[in-house]
Nucleic acid binder design. Structure first.
Lengths: 331, 331
DNA sequence: CTCGTGGTCGATCATTTGTTCGTGCTTTGA
DNA sequence: TCAAAGCACGAACAAATGATCGACCACGAG
């Protein structure tokens, strides 16, 4: 159809004048001899037909695409993807990750009304609070969602509650328990303690949580830091756990797996965050499966990750055919 | 400076969200945690730093760049550049040129108040009026600016006045003269005729003129169609004429060359268009020098040409160092 | 310690852009 | 030839954008 091609020519002209030439639509209208709304329609056509290609010349560009795709797909309120460090170690983005997460964290901390904020454990959470600059907020309370006592009685060195509370000058509430109790009875006893209950009560009042995401494999933090034994790790692998949130093991689809360990986890249940923002922090391609599980389970409202993990997530989701189309560039 | 880099990161993020993601600045502001004017500044920075690259995926794109450069450089009211026909003959854009010129022409013809419009001669003008679709405007007058009688008494087959007047149904005024008289006396006699005078009077009332541009070389229309003899052509070449408008020979700089021929040209003087739009139509790389001369002389207010000639003009002007910088992409 | 001074930030306003709706035209089928 | 449908167009309005200005803050010199 010749008519259509003529229109496309005009559309291309209008698009050029608008996006490259920097003219206003009024100028373009008089130049092309059409009305201003006509120019509007031409520009819409040009975009719709994909005549207009915009490229952002910066490493961030790829991250933004991933961020948008993931945030859209899993209904997140935000999704930050930090770029993979171009030179050097594959894990070089750890620092970026911490800074990005700290920025999100300070968004909450900035406000002056009293805030109750809860934290999970792990290197990522610890890195986040360390990257945070000191801020005077004694009115805020910081509470842990997961025990920081290992089975041998030692304290978890990656617990961020102490560091954060030091930086804000606010109150701190530590959960006096191991992540996984030795038995169901012990678990019930621990959770029944008055001290545990009062900390848990504060945790339930938290308006937002920042947590890490754990892998379930030989390098699992849960195992490496002696929160679970090798036998217990084997059981989780047996049940096809791919990740954990606060010690709760997740299946590929993000369901909490009901097994012997689940019944002994002393952390707060994930369900208390169904209506409040739960923010996960974690990066590296190895964390990909765990993050994906957490996303699929719909547990998260926010995510701070890196390009490696984000790429894994998007590629895997694409591959499984759940969602073939990413968000289209609208301009 | 690390601070600047951080800002550039933010700017890239903002640019991506705005141009690729299609979000509003308000959305971006809340997402990035800055105020709306802040986003404004980030976007300005991103553009300024050249982070944003826009590409229009259409053959027209190159033409628009040329068009803008030429229109800007020579203060034209408009400059249409039609694309070179991708496949086939190097002169394949003739048809495009005719259609584009016809569009400009009909812009003037469309109006209902009486219009006096003048035409030059040549294949380009003839093509233009032929490409024009019939339009009922008996109130308009069409007048020729240049004689259509060759030295041997035959009429110029490329005269467009008759064709155009047929299409509009309006009055027509033909200049009863050769382009170049045999002698100064003959020229004065011709121009003194009452008939010539009355047609010239109409021509002087013309609000706009569409004219061709002639080369001055062995293939010159002026020569080929027997308006001038070989000896006269040699004289023009001797005087370094590179083109002609209405038969008036132009130097490289667009000055009308004062020579024996100039004193015998019977066409209307170019100066009558100093304050009214004179539109040149012509394409092909061969016409480049002639067009460039016409532009340099400042005779033109509008130009319809093709990519070949436009490219010649821009490249030559660049090379001569008169204007190194093209219009910057403002986004 | 106080006073500029440069620079950044956000409120406000003018301009530009996007959308909606009613009108009139062309096109198509009876 | 006429009627109905579809379509394109432009007026008017709503939203978003860009620009200006004053206020505030950190820094350095006197």
């Amino acid at each position: 159809m010749d008519k259509f091609e003529r229109k496309l020519d005009q559309a291309a002209r209008a698009a050029w004048l608008s996006y490259v030439g920097g003219h206003t639509q009024d100028e373009i209208a008089s130049q092309l001899g059409v009305s201003r709304p006509g120019v509007q329609r031409l520009l819409a056509l040009a975009r719709q037909e994909g005549l207009v290609k915009v490229h952002i010349d910066h490493p961030i560009a790829g991250c933004m695409a991933l961020s948008e795709a993931i945030g859209e797909r899993y209904g997140l309120e935000f999704c930050d993807v930090v770029p993979a460090d171009p030179q050097g170690a594959p894990d070089g983005s750890t620092r970026y990750l911490a800074v990005a997460a700290a920025e999100r964290l300070s968004w909450y901390l900035d406000r002056s009304e009293p805030l109750t904020l809860s934290l999970g454990t792990g290197r990522a959470v610890r890195g986040m609070v360390e990257a945070l600059s000191r801020i005077d907020r004694p009115q805020h309370r910081v509470v842990s969602l997961v025990g920081n006592v290992a089975r041998d009685g030692s304290s978890n060195r990656y617990d961020g509650v102490m560091v954060l509370a030091d930086k804000t000058g606010g109150e701190r509430f530590l959960l006096p328990a191991p992540v996984v109790a030795g038995s169901v009875e012990e678990s019930e006893a621990l959770c029944g303690q008055r001290l545990y209950q009062s900390v848990a009560e504060v945790a339930r009042e938290a308006e937002v949580a920042f947590i890490g995401v754990g892998r379930i494999d030989r390098q699992a933090t849960l195992f490496q830091d002696h929160f679970i034994s090798e036998a217990e790790l084997d059981e989780l692998l047996e049940r096809e756990a791919v990740g954990e949130l606060l010690g709760w093991p997740l299946s590929r689809d993000g369901e909490v797996i009901d097994c012997s360990i689940t019944r002994r986890v002393t952390s707060l249940p994930l369900t208390i965050f169904r209506d409040r923002p739960l923010v996960a922090v974690g990066g590296g391609r190895d964390k990909g499966p765990a993050l994906l599980a957490a996303l699929r389970g719909g547990w998260l409202k926010g995510l701070v990750t890196d390009e490696h993990a984000a790429r894994y997530i998007v590629e895997t989701e694409r591959g499984s055919g759940l969602d073939g189309a990413g968000p289209a560039a609208k301009v």
